[in-house]
Design a protein around this nucleic acid. Structure first.
Lengths: 230, 230
DNA sequence: TTCAAATTTAAGCTTAATTTAAGTTAGTTT
DNA sequence: AAACTAACTTAAATTAAGCTTAAATTTGAA
């Protein structure tokens, strides 16, 4: 199975970091950074589905990393994993935009469960491999896309794009984010491909009247929304 | 203030339930159920944005409630709040589809923070990302503007302007400040655009009788005020 | 190697946002 | 009340973002 899920672990204890990686690797690709600055850099430059963040780090502390990435409008779920057990630390972490907070020492199983819960809530699934929106269904295992139970043929990039949009439903994605995710931040193709692929994708969604689900927000980006949200 | 957020608390300790309600009520409407069966019933029959669920309950235990509501395809985020601190209980809870798990005794602030984090992740916002004034609501996540729950279409600069005004409600903003903020201090367009955009914005607010909210202060600037401030 | 499909580029088109300009209204000052 | 000024409104002109198409190029399977 292809791992569509990317998790960033920012943790200076290399043993622990490797440990975490080892028990998340069944269902996700794990990147590790061992100091604050490169952690922040990785979080901003690369697209991840989840970030596990230590607080006490050399270079830059976890709070500042979190603050920085939220200021950069990066919405990735963040789980703080730390030895700090004080209420104030927890509240501060959540206020800066964390999604969960787990204190060390912890059980492997609990971290795993919390990670999966966060991914699920963000529309990314570690277990079930079917993404749904309205009457669109994507099977992440066999890459089949069905609309009203009718198979729709998408090529590689069209598929990637639709998956990325659905994984971020109800959230605006900028052209740059989309480009970085699908083409890679170091790609030397022109960013206008994003428009071309949006157009192609919409054309294929049009016969089933689902093209409207991809909304353009001029000067900002694109968003895919649940029906009821309108 | 209108509360758009509804939280269901299923908890047999009536004191505790009322307590929880009292410190969530700043930003949400809280329903309380004191036994398992009516808890399950309320969860299925009524729409909530979040469910806080005790595990040990008369009538039906929390696990079964959770299992039931997920089988009914109800996707509402669930936070388990319980005295059970065992790892197995936590893992079981998450496996049944819980989104968070907090053990008693707990701090008011932590529950509050976790509730807000869950709401944020579900696209419902308890704070920052929804700006409100009177019956105007701006969702900063998807850039939707609603008046009396009715969608209003604003173009980019109109949106920026309204956001800036609401972010500074009850404060006078000078034309220069507005121009600098929306058009940029080095813009070479004429500052009279500010008046044009104020006019356009008011025109769009007029059908819902909200245009008066933007008040001109001659020779000084503009101000947006709360109803009761007048 | 060949061919088909996927990807990328380039160009023109469409739509909508933005800006300018000019006329109108309303408030201030004398 | 007249003259003056600030702010409002409207509509036309301009600009730009995004969409679409088709041709050119690349890739990869047979």
């Amino acid at each position: 199975m292809q791992k569509n899920i990317k998790i960033l672990v920012v943790e200076d204890d290399k043993n622990l970091a490797n440990n975490i990686a080892s028990f998340l690797c069944d269902f996700a690709q794990v990147d590790i950074e061992n100091d604050g600055l490169s952690g922040k850099f990785a979080a901003i430059e690369d697209v991840h589905d989840l970030i596990i963040l230590d607080l006490m780090l050399p270079g830059m502390n976890g709070y500042d990393i979190l603050k920085n990435i939220r200021e950069e409008k990066i919405n990735t779920p963040v789980l703080i994993l730390t030895a700090k057990t004080e209420l104030d630390d927890k509240v501060h972490g959540f206020n800066l935009g964390a999604d969960d907070y787990l204190t060390k020492p912890f059980h492997r199983e609990e971290l795993q469960a919390r990670v999966k819960a966060l991914l699920k809530r963000s529309g990314i699934s570690a277990d079930e491999s079917v993404l749904k929106l309205n009457n669109i269904e994507i099977n992440l295992n066999n890459h089949e896309v069905k609309i009203n139970n009718q198979l729709v043929e998408l090529n590689g990039k069209e598929y990637d794009l639709l998956v990325y949009l659905l994984q971020n439903k109800n959230i605006i994605l900028t052209k740059d984010q989309i480009f970085e995710r699908i083409w890679g931040f170091d790609s030397d193709t022109s960013i206008t491909v994003v428009e071309v692929y949006m157009s192609n994708l919409r054309k294929k969604l049009r016969p089933s009247k689902n093209d409207y689900l991809i909304k353009t927000i001029r000067n900002v980006g694109y968003i895919c929304q649940d029906e009821e949200q309108n």
